Amino acid sequence: MKIVIIGGTGLIGSKLVARLGEHGHEAVPAAPNTGVDTLTGEGLAEVLAGASVVVDVSNSPSFEDAAVLDFFRTSTGNLLSAEREAGVGHHVALSVVGTDRRPDVGYFRAKLAQEKLIEDSGIPFSIVHATQFFEFARRIADEATGGGTVRMPPVLFQPLAGDEVAQAVGRAAAGAPLNGRTEIAGPEQFRMDEFFRGALAAWGDPREVVTDPHAPYFGAEMRERDLVPDGGATLGEIKYADWLAANPAP
């Protein structure tokens, strides 16, 4: 079946296109560099023609509160409208563990708004909530850096490999709509400060990791369980040390 992947040239999208193609689906990547822009609607009608499923793994270029909210509202609204016109039967979206617990956090609030649009669209849907990706760890460390130190809160953290995110999203896309959510997380749970202390050492990075209960995570102070599932999540199998051995720093 034809499955259109919005954000299909990005980290998760490109993995998803390859995985779905290997399973015999017509997996079509859709992104601005393929002529499809969900913010303007350009190319949507054409790429969705004949599609059975649309998977949205796109992300906002800015995490600033107003910008990210505008991105997901506009992009998702245009996409759902085009899907109704095209008769798409299943909308799959990748979201974040904890959106419903922290609507005061700008990015979570934006993803929650996206999920609400999907729920209210009338299109059968599946939403996959994921914890953070291994591939994003360096950016998290860089965002937390100041004066040669990396300030991290000692909250729970349960990242997973991007390949396993793509696997879970692909499974949702090929299956029947859940009209609900499923959660995925990594196989190991850490304290965030301890994870990054070990990660920087493994990277050969000389920055010092400082434990700070008030250190912000992309602008927001996290509570103990904000970044991990409440329970019942599907757990990946790839441990960070094994992933890092297979994906050494350039």
Rank of each mutant, 00 (worst) to 15 (best):
D193R: 04
T211N: 13
D100L: 06
L79C: 12
T34A: 01
G50L: 04
G13E: 02
L178Y: 03
A110V: 11
R84K: 12
I140G: 05
V128P: 06
L20R: 00
N33L: 00
V92S: 03
R207T: 07
V97G: 05
A141E: 14
V28L: 01
A176N: 05
A27G: 00
H129F: 06
V165W: 00
E237V: 13
T9L: 00
I123L: 10
A233G: 14
I3A: 00
P159H: 04
Y107W: 08
V36M: 05
G180Y: 09
L80D: 09
K15S: 02
Q114C: 14
A215W: 10
A30I: 05
E183L: 07
A233C: 08
A67S: 08
A18H: 02
V155A: 09
G35A: 09
V97K: 13
F190P: 06
L200P: 09
Q114H: 10
D193S: 07
T40A: 12
L20M: 02
D230C: 08
I140M: 08
A174K: 01
F125L: 11
T76C: 12
F195N: 06
P32E: 03
R151G: 12
A67D: 10
D142F: 06
T34F: 06
K116I: 05
P61G: 07
I118M: 12
H214K: 13
M222K: 11
D230H: 11
L48V: 08
V57L: 07
L160Q: 00
P159T: 08
S14G: 02
H91W: 06
R73L: 11
N33C: 01
T145I: 07
E221G: 08
F190Y: 13
Q189S: 08
P103H: 07
A176D: 00
I6N: 02
H91F: 05
R191I: 12
F196A: 01
V55Y: 01
E64N: 09
A245I: 12
I184G: 05
D65L: 09
V36K: 00
S126Y: 03
G162M: 01
Q167Y: 05
E208Q: 11
D230G: 11
R197D: 10
A185V: 03
I12H: 00
E85S: 09
G35F: 07
A245G: 10
D70I: 15
F195S: 03
E221M: 09
A49G: 10
L178I: 01
A51Y: 14
D65R: 10
I5A: 06
R197M: 07
Q158K: 02
A31Y: 05
P154L: 13
E115I: 13
D70A: 14
R223M: 15
T38I: 15
N59D: 06
D100A: 15
G35W: 11
L235E: 14
P32L: 06
G7P: 03
G77V: 07
A173N: 01
G175V: 03
N78G: 15
L94S: 01
L94F: 00
I6Q: 04
N59F: 05
G13Y: 01
F108Y: 11
A215V: 13
D104F: 04
V68T: 11
P187G: 10
I5L: 02
A66E: 07
G50I: 08
V97L: 04
F134D: 04
V210Y: 12
S58G: 10
E194S: 03
G175E: 01
G147F: 15
S121C: 11
S14V: 02
L20A: 00
A241H: 15
E22H: 08
P61D: 07
A241P: 12
D226S: 06
R109I: 07
I123T: 14
F125G: 12
W203A: 04
